[in-house]
């Protein structure tokens, strides 16, 4: 996930290298050593500000996509980008790793507290993960499989726990966070409906498994040996095999197993894939808020730091100068 996002912004890397080379070959040699620390902070922070500015527009774009696509009934979903809403149902049993809660999807994060040289504390991630099990989303017209792999999951944390000071060695506290969607929870999915062949594959696997069980059961094999000569002839085996397959087909049809020939998942061409336990309106509001916040704050950060940068180089006289060294001083 991190690498997928990083790859998208890889295009900024040459710009970063170019700007850094210019700064350190043209401006820094003439500066006071104290200013070097200023430049080292200002360039990345400026890029972060610009990144927030552009990322904010991406958030707003996603918000409009969510608002502009009507919600489909699951019974009649068409191939391509689709929005559905309903309740989550398990396809396979699943339990979250920290709280052992029965769920259809989970994500967890374990962090460890560290102490810095100056006595400050910070948290580092020591373990994290998420489930990739398929699950169903069901509305009043039917249900459809969801493959959560690669989705942007918008969920509030369901469990948060920070160890108390005495629970572990000093400076080695752990913090646990878990997110999950339980069966029956309301779910919103924006994703791409596509063909899925797992239904056929699982049928084949089940058939092989049943035939294997039949072969290993001597009592059952006696029924296969219809002429009771002590040997199962190829013809007798073919008849038994057909019966097993017929029974399996009947069971699958009764369970509507072949409805699983389509699913909602990630697309090769569209980057819009959202799963959330919130309503469409709430998600749109959150994206709207975050989008405008990132655009405005990114703009302000970039301009303020650029002003400090210009002041440091002496181009802007009397401008603001951000005292970065304060970050390294103990209060």
């Amino acid at each position: 996930m991190f690498f997928a996002v990083a790859k998208r912004y890889l295009v900024l890397f040459p710009v970063f290298v170019f700007v850094t080379v210019i700064i350190f070959t043209v401006i820094v040699p003439c500066s006071h050593p104290k200013d070097v620390m200023g430049y080292l902070h200002e360039i990345p922070v400026m890029l972060v500000g610009l990144g927030m500015f552009f990322k904010g527009f991406e958030r707003l774009r996603k918000k409009y996509i969510i608002e502009n696509i009507p919600t489909s009934k699951i019974r009649s979903v068409a191939m391509g980008l689709t929005e559905v809403a309903g309740t989550a149902q398990n396809k396979y049993p699943l339990y979250s790793p920290i709280t052992r809660t029965g769920c259809v999807y989970y994500r967890f994060l374990v962090e460890k507290e560290n102490k810095g040289n100056k006595g400050n504390t910070y948290w580092t991630v020591i373990n994290q993960g998420e489930s990739t099990n398929y699950f169903y989303i069901e509305d009043n017209t039917g249900k459809i499989l969801v493959d959560p792999d690669g989705a942007e999951i918008i969920l509030p944390p369901d469990y948060k726990y920070t160890e108390l000071s005495g629970e572990s060695a000093p400076g080695a506290r752990k913090r646990y966070t878990e997110w999950y969607i339980r069966p029956g929870d309301a779910v919103y999915v924006l994703g791409t409906v596509k063909k899925f062949n797992d239904g056929i594959d699982s049928h084949r696997e089940k058939l092989i498994e049943r035939l294997r069980l039949l072969k290993s059961d001597s009592e059952m094999m006696k029924h296969v040996d219809t002429d009771k000569d002590g040997n199962v002839s190829p013809a007798e085996w073919d008849t038994a095999r057909l019966n097993v397959e017929k029974n399996l087909l009947e069971e699958e049809l009764a369970e509507n197993k072949f409805d699983d020939d389509i699913l909602i998942g990630k697309s090769e061409i569209s980057r819009d894939f959202v799963i959330s336990d919130r309503s469409e309106k709430d998600i749109a509001w959150e994206l709207d808020f975050k989008g405008y916040f990132m655009v405005i704050s990114g703009f302000l950060v970039a301009i303020l730091v650029f002003a400090s940068f210009l002041s440091r180089t002496g181009i802007l006289r009397g401008g603001p100068l951000i005292p970065w060294e304060i970050l390294y001083k103990r209060c």
Binding site: F53, F54, F57, L60, V295, F299, A302, I303, F306, A307, L310, S311, I315, L316, R317, G319
Partner: peptide, 22 residues
């Protein structure tokens, strides 16, 4: 000079933002 550069960059960023929005 410095103020003019700062002003131009700020206006430039606003213009870029408006263009992206449109």
């Amino acid at each position: 000079m410095g103020a003019a550069i700062l002003f131009l960059v700020a206006v430039g960023l606003i213009v870029v933002g408006v263009v992206i929005y449109l």
